[in-house]
Simulated scan of single mutants.
Amino acid sequence: MNILHLDSAITGDASVSRKLTAEAVAKLTAAHPDARITYRDLNMGVPAIDTEWFHAVRMTPENPSPKQLELIATSDAYLKEVQDADVLVIGLPVYNFNLPAQLKNWLDQIARAGISFRYTAEGPEGLLKGKRAIIAYAAAGTPMGSEMDHASKYLRHMLGFLGITDVTFIPADGLALDRDAAMTRAQQALEELAA
């Protein structure tokens, strides 16, 4: 089993989503001691896509410049980690009702027409099938699944668009209102998590 472990919280050791992703990975590796883990802290920086990225990655120039080669290599590296993974464990802290910019940047980097998805006569088809995603959702006051939660809905949609439809959430929402209750809910979800 190959596990891709992604964190994106800006709060360091105080992060609930980081704690929960670590516990999920520990549960998976306890059941699969030979699992290989690739860890990436998206908070260390994920380049946002821009016009240069579009010309380098999407337009596939015949003679790419050194800068374009660098942009292509970065995007390819993110995508290969996902392609190689059987399970993605993703930390989803909620900031301002949505996912962190660095997690959105990562999604933009891996959403590549013809590689991670394609358009067909029946509509778009995700090409990253057969993978599982475990999402550690942490929010101070945004209830998961509520009208104000644009984070979990968007992430589930994007993963599904890319072909990853086996998605499990570990919710720790309402942390600012009743931290103990939120952590109890998250621990219950972790206990029920099939390794």
Rank of each mutant, 00 (worst) to 15 (best):
A31C: 09
S152C: 11
A9E: 05
A111I: 07
A113E: 13
A101C: 08
T120G: 03
A189T: 02
R36W: 00
Y119M: 13
R58V: 09
P93N: 05
E191W: 00
V87T: 15
R132L: 12
D50Y: 09
D86L: 03
I90S: 01
D84E: 13
N63L: 06
K104L: 11
L127P: 05
G45I: 10
S75K: 07
M144S: 06
E62S: 14
L88Y: 01
Y78K: 05
Y137T: 02
G114L: 14
E52T: 07
P143G: 12
S75D: 03
A35F: 12
L177I: 15
R112S: 12
A172K: 04
Q102P: 03
D166A: 12
N2G: 04
E122T: 12
L69P: 00
A101D: 05
T21M: 00
T142M: 12
A24Y: 01
P66H: 09
A14Q: 11
V82R: 00
Y119E: 05
N63D: 14
G126Q: 11
A14V: 01
E147M: 13
F117S: 08
L107Q: 08
F54Q: 10
G12C: 06
M144D: 01
A133E: 05
Q187I: 00
Y119L: 11
Q109L: 01
D50T: 12
Y78M: 10
F54Y: 15
R58D: 15
A189P: 07
R112M: 13
G12F: 08
I72D: 09
G123D: 11
I72Q: 13
D7R: 08
K27A: 06
F97C: 10
L79V: 13
P61E: 02
L88T: 04
K129S: 11
Y39C: 00
E23V: 01
M44V: 13
A85C: 07
G160H: 08
D41C: 04
I49V: 15
L159N: 09
R40T: 10
S8Q: 03
T120E: 01
N63R: 12
A73I: 09
I37H: 02
D76V: 05
N63W: 00
S17K: 03
M183F: 02
